[in-house]
Design a protein around this nucleic acid. Structure first.
Lengths: 219, 219
DNA sequence: TAAAAATTTTAGATTTGTCTAAAAATAAAT
DNA sequence: ATTTATTTTTAGACAAATCTAAAATTTTTA
């Protein structure tokens, strides 16, 4: 079965809203999708017949297993494309969302798998959000992106956002390993680069792209 | 101004058909787009108000300057994505057309330019067709139809006349690829079939239809 | 050149996704 | 526990893109 862009956007919105609430209200969905409650009701009836969600009128809505599967597939595509745009096409991490909103609706399954492979099976997107794998599983994150670290707090590198050889080469050169302890000393808005300090070494700056590929936990 | 996928597909189809004919008939468009003549008429009226084409009823249609510009932008995207799929994602050149049909409608101008840069500003797509640059200019391919080749001259297959899976299947079976070098050894007037020879292989004949679908350059 | 054939357009319907306005159901408040 | 307010659904309409069937126009042909 295949789905329209509109249908996929509803499924994705419900998925995001139901993380907190459990069930999602018509009005909340209307707000999220910048549409009207009446339009939402119509679409919910339609998606119910496609067995993507359970819905009783006036009772709110939640995704079925099928619906969640579809939502994860869309999130997967969105985040893989964001990774590609930032890491390969040199987009800023703050300008990729809209483009990814379009790319996530490209249907080819083969494209997604090939892209994932090409990117080195990244586990996190440029914002630090986990990318579901082809089975819908995603890494749990008790870690934050280095780019989001507060200043002058000790952190320990706990994972990297990709397995690409280019990244690993760069990390080796900068002498950064899993377990390395460091502090963020400054953030530069111009290019989103950050200055970090590793214990006895001189502080040095690393690029936005590199910072986004590093995940740390507070210590 | 922005355009729907349907509108873009009409513009692209007219662009391709008008290469030969000059003006394009309603029925030819209906056939190309697998739709009905009545639908075509409706869309032509709409695209006329958007100044993408000139159209008088019963007189056929042709693109305006604006229309051609749009068509070239779509062709550019299509062929850049095909290049990416084959060169970076390891797709076979015979499995990229449909995916590119979707990707060509992604609207971001920035994405196209970044992608072009990332790919190294390629001039030809994997089928040998020229990729328009950001101004709509494309390299001229000094290629001729295989059926017009003189005898016993070395030629290199540079593009194919169609993307049909049937053609690609046949080429695969005959072991003919873009870049394959061959000579025409004989031409048979009866059915316009021709005998060709690929370096160390035995000569074999191919049909008029197949020969017409192959373009080569002299080497 | 007048009749037949083919092409193209119009007219009216359908589907998808949206809207506004009004009605119905639920939740909140006095 | 009624009344009031909020939320949600229904009813009817609209734009986009398509369709079928019939009418209009152009082209072919005899």
């Amino acid at each position: 079965m295949s789905f329209t862009t509109a249908e996929e956007n509803y499924i994705k919105a419900i998925f995001h809203l139901q993380q907190e609430d459990g069930t999602v209200s018509t009005n909340a969905l209307a707000a999220e999708l910048h549409t009207k409650a009446a339009s939402v009701t119509d679409m919910l009836k339609k998606l119910k017949t496609k067995k993507l969600l359970s819905y009783e009128k006036y009772k709110g809505v939640r995704l079925t297993g099928e619906g969640k599967k579809l939502a994860l597939a869309i999130v997967r595509k969105h985040r893989l494309w964001e990774f590609f745009l930032v890491n390969n096409l040199q987009f800023g991490w703050d300008e990729v969302h809209e483009v990814a909103e379009e790319l996530e609706h490209i249907s080819s399954k083969k494209l997604v798998e090939k892209l994932d492979q090409f990117l080195g099976y990244p586990k996190f997107d440029p914002h630090g959000d986990p990318i579901p794998d082809s089975h819908g599983k995603m890494a749990v994150q008790l870690q934050i992106n280095l780019i989001d670290m507060p200043l002058n707090k000790m952190a320990e590198v706990s994972s990297v956002g990709s397995q690409s050889t280019e990244l690993l080469e760069l990390l080796k050169h900068k002498n950064i390993l899993i377990g390395t302890r460091l502090e963020v000393k400054k953030k530069f808005g111009f290019d989103h680069s950050i200055e970090i300090k590793i214990k006895s070494q001189q502080p040095f700056t690393i690029s936005q792209q590199l910072a986004q590929a590093l995940f740390v936990k507070l210590v």
